[in-house]
Every structure is written in C-alpha cells, then in structure tokens.
Design a protein around this nucleic acid. Structure first.
Lengths: 354, 354
DNA sequence: GACATGAGCTAAACCGCATTAGTAGCGTCG
DNA sequence: CGACGCTACTAATGCGGTTTAGCTCATGTC
C-alpha cells in the first residue's frame, strides 16, 4: 500500500518534538523551556505562556527516558505477581485491584510495570533487576507471607514499596495497606452462629500467606469466645481441585459441619458442586460462605453468601500510598474499609442442630 | 530500628555501578566496556573477558533509561486493556495470556507496561502518550473490533504492534496473531449436530468485536450447510447478568433450543444456573457449551463441555511476533493452534428431537 | 623503506532533559 | 554614582549509556 515500506523497514512518521524544537520556535533557550514547562521560577509570565502554547502546538510530551536519566524518577512503578502459571485461574481479585491502582497512577502519568513469575525467588530477582536497571521508582507487593523475605530485600535496595494485604511486621521501610481479616472472620462466624450453626469448617488458602494465618487465628479465638469446640481450618492451595477435595473430606468425616467458609470464590463454588454431587441441600443441610465476592458467586445456584470487599478501592489506596512515599511521605500502615458480609441464598439455619 | 532512617528519609543503600566504574576497575575506556558488554568488535578477547568479569563482580546492569535515551529501544512493550471497570469480572483469559507473554518477554529482558482503561478512546490516548513519551517500543493489542481505529493509529505513529485475536484487515503495518474462530464454531456445531441437536442458540459476546462477528457468521454458514434453520445468535456484553437474561429469553420463546453455545465461561455458568432455577435438566433437556475453558467450567455441576484454547501459548506467540517485529521482521499474520472441544457433562443427546 | 591495512583501543559527541552557574539589564539605596 | 540585589534569561554540565571518528602500533607488501 505505502510504496516506501518494503517489508521490514519501518516508516518514520513524524519526529518527536523535543524542547530544543520548542526553544527554537519560541525564540528562547532550552533551559527557559524546561523551567516554563516544569513550573519553575525564572521565566516571565508572558514567556511562560508562549512556551506553553508552542509546546501544545507541537504536541510535545517529555521523553520518559531522558527525564528518567537526568531526574530521579523513572515514572514507573512495578507489580510482580508470583504464581505458578497453572494457578492463574479464575481470580477476579487481581484485575480489579490493578484497575484501582491504574486509576490513581494514570492521573499522575505514572506507568505500571507488570510481571508474572513462577515463585517468590523469581519475584525477588525481578526486584533486584528492576532496581539495578533503575526501571521503577517503587513497587506494590502482593500476597504477603508470614515469613516474608521481600520487605527486607526492598528495604536494603531502598526501593519504596507498599505491601498490599497485611500489616507491617518488624520495622521495615515498607508501607502497608491492609484489610482487617480478623474482624471480618469474626463477623462471618457471628453470622453463622446467629443462624444456629455450631459446627463450622474453614477451608483456608495457602498456609504461608499472612492473611490466611490471621483468618485461622481469628476463627480459633472467636470460636473460643463463643464456646464452640467443633471448629477448624483446613489448608488448601486455593485451587478448585483442592477446594473440592477438602469439601469431600470434611463431609465424609464422622461429624460433618453444618457450614463451611471458603477462603476464595472458586473453592466455594467447587464446594457447592460437591454438595450437588452428593444431593446435599444448600443451604438446608449445608451453609456456604465465600470470602471475596465476584461474578462467580452471583452466577451459581444457589447464589453464594459472600464477604464483599472494595477491591479496586483497595488498589486505589495502595497506589496513593506508594505515590505519597515517592513524594517523600512517611512509612505508614493504612487500613482499608472493613469487608462486609452479603447474605445471599447459600446460608440459612441448619436443619438439625449439632 | 536503623537509626539513620528518620521517617521520610530514604537510605541510599549502594550506588548503582556504571560502565565508568567498570572502566576504571578494568583499566580501559568506557567505550571499550560498552563494546565488550554488547558483543561488538573492537576489543580483544582477553580484555573482553576481563571486562565481563569486572561487570559481574560489580553486579552491573544497564540503566534502562540511559540505554533508552541513547539507543533506539526503551526495552518495554505495552498492553492496554479497555474495559469498563465493572466488567473486570471473572476472566481467566487475560492473566493466562499475560503469563504467556511474560514468559517470552522476560527471557529477552523486555518489560511489560500494563494499563487498564475505560474505553477505546482512552486506549488510543494511551498509545499516543506512550509514543510521544517514547515509553514503549511496541504494543500488543487485544479485543480487535470489526471497525477498529487502532491499526490506523498505530500505523501512523509507526508503533510496531501485534493484534491479538483477529486476522488483519486492510494493509496496515500491524501483525496479527489469531485463532480460527470460524473453524472452531464449525466444530462445535458439528458436535451438537452429531448428538442430534437441530435447534441451537448462540449467546454471543459484544457485537463490535471481530471474533464475535466471525463466530456469528460461521454459525450461520455452517447451519446453512447442514440445512438447519432454527439457529441464531443473540448478542450480549459478556456479563453474567446478560448471559442469564439471554438464557431466560430464549428458553421462554415459543420454540426453545435444545442446546446453547455461550461465548464465554461466565455466561455459560450463568446459563446453567438459570436452567437449575427452572428445573431444566442439563444435559437431558438442554445441552450447554462454553467457549473458553477455565476453572469455572470444571467447578460447576455438571461440568461444562468447553472449547479449550492454549491461551498462554497464544500469548507466547504474540510476544514472539512482537519481538520479531522490533528486530525488523516483516508484518505477518500468524495462526494459533486450533481450539479443540473438550466434551464434559453438559452436552448430550436431546431427549426429544425438534 | 615507504605505504597501505587492520586490530585494538581512546576521545568526543550525542540522545533529551534537568539543573547549576553565570550574565545582562535595571531599579534602588546610601 | 558605584555597590547591591533582583528579575529574566542563557550557557554549560551531567545523567549513563551508544556510537563515530580518530589514533597508535604491529604487520604485510612491493
């Protein structure tokens, strides 16, 4: 079509304008342009306006590399997701989180560098590389663990960072944004208790994750407070397969529970499927609660009672905190809005008390 | 803990080594270092080895900004996802795609810039900005539309790009990586036809999307070939809500279908829920096929017959093509492996032929 | 022995911007 | 009226690489 493009050759459609071009057109020096465009003093209002007009005309945008090289900032923040590829299943949490993050970052013209890796070692390697390459100004860290090597690493690299999901441990230079899983678990158990459930099983997520531990501990504490003994948590890897397997195991036990709380939506749905397989009525014979709401929970039959969080709000909060850190703000620990329980059709009074 | 860190102040943990440091330590000029580290001629093997050793010792990594500024490349490619925030529901497709993309990019030390925006106008604005800022070397474009403004824009910007999902339209300098939706739809219809279905409804996705159009057209063509008349497609926005709504409508019609093909997994699951609501047996009275497999399809009861694609393989292919373009390769149109149908429990012969 | 050749290296320019250190012009003050 | 300070600007430098031009020395050639 375009005759000058013979195969591999790429056209050079329009040279990017630089401040030099602006300087020439406005009849001033490059420094004056730089001052004007960055709102620094040293230029008269008239000249400033003229420079802005010319820049606008030319459609100038700062070359991010040049800015990163001379200034401090790269204008990027990073997010690494460490998950074995096969685990990247149905997980609405992430895209929602990221969309919240973007909302805040985009407004400040900060880009998000995203990387998916296999495991936490690879994740640490990415941080090191990004740091060495000076590719990012800071990072958002997800899936905090109970014995997490990342805060120390990030601290030693001096890479500003925000942990998403768990309150700080130790005295690291790492902000945290978290939701109160303990209180949330308490509210779930209270809901089930009020309905009359005395025997509840918690199908938990990965044991290494900090929020898993907190949910498990909270469940134990609250059960003690209510005088319940037939309460326990069983660990899984969050997959539908293990969720189903755990469900079968607890239903097969001598004293099956009257309610199950699942640590994510996928496992909860898998649990419903197991119940359906066996002809167990939900919520008549078994009540089910999903931690984290999603389309999934509204799509099954019966629709699932779920713990709703404002995930994208969570992302916004985290991004704001990271930007604040980059601007020299203090290390903080921020708490997101408390999740609330959305009762739907999968929970009800047990038919026969234990 | 660390006494020198008083609040906002960030520590400077270790200066990043530069080629200057390497040059000094190796007793050569900076240019020699650059030549050696980039495998260019002009340095003896001995010196080259020495330089490499020193670089290794110092843990040197090229500063991405500096490299971007002097060289051509920024070492980043971009991916923009245009979705209204509330649509970011259960969608395994993306994370899987991205994980495949990363696998290839990471091996070449190319970073992925990721952005979620509201709509396609915002998406175009992001491309313009990235181009002007010289932030990315190329982009991956998803969700091709039947009348898509993006290829023209990217072409005019001279931004190397790969469209994921649809074959090229027109003569743009844009590579495409796509799956044969037409053939896939034909195989789905053949499967249902063999089982005895003569009345099939296709609950389609967004009408504007190119692959939606191709599926619809293929369905019509194939139905014609098989002599079927009671075949149609109904459009939706991919959400579980519209999927359920469409299901109710077609089941309420005068001549309800014996099988429904859904354009994604979420809607298929919603369809199963609607059937359950009404006591319609799946697959006895209604067969259901989901386009795109996911944990979701294996988690419901009955488990869904689904069209399986190697999504992360798709991502790998796209990333490889983009890297090839960046290396000056020609614009190509690559076809991914044909999706295959995975029969599970949601399809079977209809109880009474139409 | 004069000269071309090429390998191996260095010096210097450059990428686009930010920033620091001037400098010219001008009003003010003692 | 010269010292001083202020405003509005320019020149120069640096960020960390890549790249081009040039320089030196050994070797080969007729």
């Amino acid at each position: 079509m375009t005759p000058q493009n013979d195969g591999a050759a790429r056209a050079t459609p329009a040279r990017r304008p630089t401040i030099k071009d602006i300087a020439r057109r406005a009849g001033v020096s490059e420094s004056a342009v730089s001052f004007a465009l960055n709102g620094r003093p040293g230029v008269s209002q008239g000249t400033r306006d003229r420079i802005h007009r010319v820049a606008e005309d030319l459609g100038w945008q700062p070359n991010s590399a040049a800015r990163a090289l001379s200034g401090e900032r790269s204008g990027c923040v990073g997010l690494v997701l460490a998950r074995p590829a096969h685990t990247l299943g149905v997980e609405s949490f992430f895209l929602q989180l990221v969309s919240g993050v973007q909302e805040v970052l985009a407004a400040r013209k900060v880009a998000l560098l995203f990387q998916v890796v296999e495991d936490i070692e690879a994740e640490c390697a990415v941080y090191r590389r990004w740091w060495a390459e000076k590719r990012v100004d800071g990072v958002l860290v997800v899936d905090p663990r109970s014995d997490d090597p990342r805060p120390e690493l990030l601290d030693s690299l001096g890479l500003p960072s925000v942990m998403i999901g768990a309150p700080a441990e130790g005295e690291r230079q790492v902000s945290t944004v978290w939701a109160d899983d303990s209180a949330a678990m308490a509210s779930v158990l209270a809901h089930l208790y009020e309905l009359g459930h005395r025997h509840v099983v918690h199908v938990a997520g990965l044991p290494g994750l900090a929020h898993t531990e907190r949910r498990i501990n909270s469940l134990r504490t609250e059960a003690g407070r209510l005088g319940l003994t037939a309460i326990r948590s069983v660990p899984t890897d969050y997959s539908d397969a293990e969720g189903a397997e755990a469900t079968r195991r607890v239903l097969d036990s001598d004293a099956p529970p009257t309610a199950i709380v699942y640590d994510n939506d996928v496992m909860a749905v898998a649990g419903v499927a197991v119940a359906a397989e066996r002809g167990i009525k939900v919520p008549g014979e078994l009540s089910i609660v999903a931690w984290d709401d999603s389309a999934l929970c509204r799509v099954t039959h019966p629709r699932l009672t779920a713990l709703v969080r404002d995930t994208s709000g969570f992302g916004r909060l985290a991004a704001e905190e990271l930007l604040a850190r980059l601007d020299g703000g203090p290390v903080r620990s921020l708490q997101a809005e408390l999740p609330h329980l959305e009762p739907r059709e999968s929970t009800g009074p047990p038919t026969s008390g234990a």
